[in-house]
């Protein structure tokens, strides 16, 4: 039996987390993994929302600096604002990542689960980094949800 899509996206999301120095694989790392896919359903879903890899990275950085600003913190040394990759892979999947997978899996059998299910899981999040990033990036969440649902219903 070949590896399922969800296995592959989790491995790539863990690598995204490592590259950003995160200790856990979170929802934003799943989003980065999806935004980096060149084939399949992901580009057609995410491109109209303006969510390519660079746009997600840029919005993550803006969310970070915005949240520091909200705490009254300003940083003179640009160097420390940049993500640093970790030599270690994340030790586990974080709560936001777990929620995304739960919602995605509720909508599909494991072998049928694809990018659109993950997108629906990501859009289901109410709190945390991802909803803030989508708002900062000006994403039309309802239009994206409708495209993802159309793909899911079509399979």
């Amino acid at each position: 039996m070949g590896r399922t899509y969800v296995d592959s996206v989790l491995v790539r999301a863990a690598e995204e987390a490592r590259r950003r120095g995160a200790r856990l694989t979170e929802a934003e790392h799943l989003l980065l993994a999806l935004a980096s896919e060149a084939e399949g359903d992901a580009p057609g879903l995410l491109s109209p929302a303006g969510l390519d890899r660079l746009a997600v990275q840029d919005a993550l950085q803006r969310e970070f600096e915005h949240s520091l600003g909200a705490a009254g913190v300003s940083v003179a040394d640009e160097e420390v604002l940049r993500p640093r990759e970790s030599p270690r892979m994340p030790s586990d999947i974080g709560e936001s990542g777990r929620r995304v997978l739960e919602v995605a899996m509720a909508g599909a059998r494991k072998k049928d689960l694809g990018p659109a299910h993950i997108v629906l899981g990501i859009l289901d999040l109410k709190v945390g980094t991802v909803p803030r990033v989508l708002a900062l990036a000006g994403v039309d969440v309802e239009a994206l949800r409708a495209r993802a649902r159309a793909v899911v219903d079509g399979t």
Binding site: F64, E65, S67, A71, V73, V80, R84, V127, T129, R132
Partner: peptide, 21 residues
């Protein structure tokens, strides 16, 4: 609370990066 918690996350990350450097 969402704003406050996001600020905590950001400061923790900043502290980690400052520590590394």
């Amino acid at each position: 609370p969402g704003e406050e918690l996001a600020a905590v996350v950001a400061m923790r990350r900043l502290a980690d990066r400052m520590e590394d450097a």
